[in-house]
């Protein structure tokens, strides 16, 4: 049977500035899927930009080839990632006037 694991990397966390999730080691997984539940997105024309990042060591990071996701309202967004090496994290950029985002971030992994 294949292995599957869901990790909750942020839980009802409110951000008012750019952030990155904690490093997550997942070299065993062949495929990954991000689920980002935006519970609240406030401010003047707020935008939440979400970029998948990869790393050779869990210390140094760069964006992978996955297109950046843009969220402008509360709700659930998802996208898939493959061939990501051993480490994954999400880099989030907040745009707009006094933006504030409250999010849950799930990483669903399968071998």
């Amino acid at each position: 049977m294949k292995h599957a694991l869901t990790a909750v990397l942020e839980r009802n966390t409110t951000f008012t500035a750019d952030f990155a999730t904690e490093p997550y080691e997942a070299g065993w997984a062949r495929e990954a899927r991000w689920f980002v539940r935006t519970l609240a997105l406030e401010g003047e024309e707020p935008h939440l930009h979400l970029a998948t990042q990869v790393s050779p060591d869990g210390l140094h990071w760069c964006d992978d080839e996955t297109p950046v996701q843009v969220t402008t309202e509360p709700g659930l967004v998802t996208w898939r990632v493959q061939e990501f090496g051993h480490w994954l994290r999400l880099r989030a950029t907040l745009r707009g006037g006094d933006p504030k985002a409250k999010v849950l971030i799930y990483l669903a992994l399968k071998s």
């Binding site: 997550y24 997942a26 050779p56 060591d57 869990g58 210390l59």
Partner: peptide, 15 residues
């Protein structure tokens, strides 16, 4: 008690 972090299956990767 809301941020105890998800465990990871690690190959003990280092830089």
């Amino acid at each position: 008690m809301r941020d105890f972090r998800p465990p990871q299956l690690s190959a003990c990767d280092f830089f």
